[in-house]
Simulated assay, not measured.
Amino acid sequence: MAENPAYVSIKDWSEDDQPREKLLFKGSSNLSDAELIAILLGTGSVAISAVQLSRNVMQDANQSLQQLGKKTLKELMKHKGIGQAKAVTIVAAMELGRRRAMEMPERIVKITCSHDVFKILQPIMGELMHEEFWILLMDNNHKVLEKHQISKGGITATHVDSRLIFKKAIEAGAVAIIMAHNHPSGTLKPSTADRDITSRIITAGVTLDIKVLDHIIITQQDYYSFADNDILS
């Protein structure tokens, strides 16, 4: 049987077409980060393919999706071949990935140590350029019932409302909470404000018989636990 003259072997596809075809034939898990980004970009420029342009973008981010997620539109548009529309597409994709990570897994997560908290909340706040304050609400068995963002911006006593924290805890039927916030600077040392907020919320919890189990400071790659360091007071 003669070959179909319209058939083109995969090896002969253009570099721009290969990522899309690889995804169709082999699944998305078989594509590199750069190839997935190339699909988002769609096209490169006259001088460079979408795949090579995406490789340049990833190289600029040290081959890290976390670092890519921190890139601003202006920083992405420094690459020749990436205009506003393509930069917006990349930023939107990174934000969708972050939001997906924010969704609680279907199974109930049980907290057994501070690192469990880090695994849950690092994808949410670890790479943010601003501070956020979150709480995990738990039952008697330390299973997570809900998680909530309490404040966004600078973490000070005026931004962290203990009434809101315990209102959510009571509504969820929680008997314990864990607090967490991020330090965009990367430092893990608790500030005086961090300590003051922790003491104030612990005191309020005693009145309501809701125990504060820990306060976690999260950075992109590490964390600090008040409980592990015996300063939970």
Rank of each mutant, 00 (worst) to 15 (best):
L23C: 14
F133G: 03
S225Y: 03
N141A: 02
C113T: 09
W13P: 04
I120P: 01
V144A: 10
I135S: 12
Q220P: 01
Q221V: 13
G44C: 10
C113R: 10
F133A: 02
Q122I: 02
E95M: 11
K11Y: 08
T192A: 12
I155N: 13
A92H: 02
H148E: 14
L65S: 04
S29I: 12
Q52F: 14
W13G: 05
I201V: 15
L36V: 13
D12S: 12
F25I: 14
S9Y: 09
R107A: 10
D222S: 10
H215S: 02
I170L: 09
K11W: 08
F166D: 07
N229Q: 09
L31E: 05
G153F: 01
R99V: 04
I165T: 12
Q52P: 00
N229G: 04
L121C: 08
I10P: 03
D228Y: 03
K78S: 12
A92S: 03
I39G: 05
W13K: 09
E95N: 14
R200S: 05
A50G: 07
K86Q: 05
K167Q: 15
L53W: 07
S32D: 07
S9T: 05
I202E: 10
T43C: 06
I201F: 10
I39H: 01
Q84H: 02
T43V: 11
A34L: 04
G205T: 05
L188W: 05
L136W: 04
R55M: 01
K152N: 06
D139T: 04
G27A: 07
I10K: 08
R195H: 12
W13E: 00
